[in-house]
Amino acid sequence: MDWIEPMEPILRPDVVTGCQWIHQVKWDGVRILCRVENGKLRLFTKNRRERTGFYPELDEVPGLLKATSAWLDGEIIVLDQDQKPSFYHVLTRERLGNPARASLYARQNPVRYIVFDILSLDGKDLREHPLRQRKAILEERLMPGRNVAITDDFSDGDALFDLMKQKGWEGIVSKRADSPYTGGKNHRDWYKTKLQKKLLAAVCGLSMKAGFPNALLLGIRPDREWIYIGKASSGLTQEHFRLLRENMSYMASESSPFPAVPSGTEDIVWFKPALTCWVSFLEWTHDGVLRHPKILGFNRSSPDEANGTEYVE
């Protein structure tokens, strides 16, 4: 089996325009490449981590595919109660370490596989074919299923981006219709435009440097346990840090509120989760922390409200 390096969209602040571009929903999930060979299914993350057996909902894929072998590219998502893709729900599935428990998790947080590309078919490499042709082959050869769908294409990127903003979803991906499939980011054919998001987080600790605070440790509690979502210092002033230092003794805790102490959190003063703040961020990493977080301001909301609900600014 020859590994195929996934093609990755390049971040840009605005929506690319022109008749040569197609636009797709950017699904808030986990990238999964799917290999079908003689009725057998293998699943891989974009970093080549094998996840075969962890998503029993996708066992239907070989039966939906009119081919002996193929490589498919797509995103697994989990919808929340409002039918909105939830990164944290899908991350719960992706963090599962024992495939024996996959059936239980599949009932609690079932995934859907949103397919957007086909890279090979019956031994033939399709990566040099233009995207529009690959997409036509995909729609001809892969039938939709209970947990499998093919993403839609849109011609108006601005309208799709506005719709994503109304829904509070992640953003869009814009792809040149005649583009080949080029592994990595060494191309100018796929772009992603993302909405700025925010959430309410609890301050669960302070990282210290030479005896002074230099970043907040943030957490959310979507279920019963606190989850670490990263450090943030952007947006804080020296006055904020002074007040936090003066009040450390009132908020300090002898232990971390997180079930497992995050790596890279040495020299920490842990807090009882009581103080909340609004945090803007660009996206989640696959380790479940915020990318480019910025503190927008402290808040009087209860830490019970720091449940991971995301809002679009």
Rank of each mutant, 00 (worst) to 15 (best):
E254L: 07
D73P: 02
E75R: 09
G171S: 05
P293R: 11
F298S: 05
S256V: 13
K272I: 11
R176F: 07
A149W: 05
S255D: 05
N214C: 05
W226N: 06
K40A: 15
Q83A: 02
T182V: 15
H187L: 04
K197F: 15
R93Y: 08
Q196A: 03
I77T: 04
K192G: 07
D28R: 09
G97M: 07
M164Q: 15
K167S: 12
L64E: 12
K198M: 04
H89N: 07
S103C: 06
H129Q: 11
A177K: 06
D125P: 07
S233C: 01
P85K: 01
D80L: 02
W21M: 05
R35S: 12
Q83F: 08
T52C: 00
L217V: 14
D304K: 11
K165R: 12
D287V: 14
Q24W: 00
T151S: 15
T276H: 09
K294Y: 14
R245S: 10
V148S: 14
V203K: 01
R221A: 08
P222C: 02
K194M: 09
R101I: 01
V261A: 02
S249H: 03
T45E: 00
L296Q: 13
W278T: 13
A215P: 02
G211S: 02
P13N: 02
L199V: 07
S179W: 00
I114K: 10
R35I: 07
R242T: 02
L275K: 06
L121T: 10
P303Y: 03
F298E: 06
D178L: 08
N214P: 01
D304P: 02
K198Y: 12
D14F: 08
K135G: 10
V115P: 02
V90P: 01
S301P: 00
L195A: 04
K198G: 10
S301E: 09
R221Y: 05
P62K: 12
R31Y: 06
P56A: 00
K198S: 09
I77E: 05
I4P: 11
G123T: 09
L119K: 14
G235L: 00
F212S: 08
P273M: 04
I172L: 10
V78M: 07
M7L: 09
A215R: 09
S174C: 00
G53H: 03
I10G: 02
V36Y: 06
A149E: 13
V115S: 03
W27Q: 14
P213R: 00
R132M: 10
Q196W: 11
E140Q: 12
V279N: 08
D28E: 07
I220E: 03
S263I: 06
L217S: 13
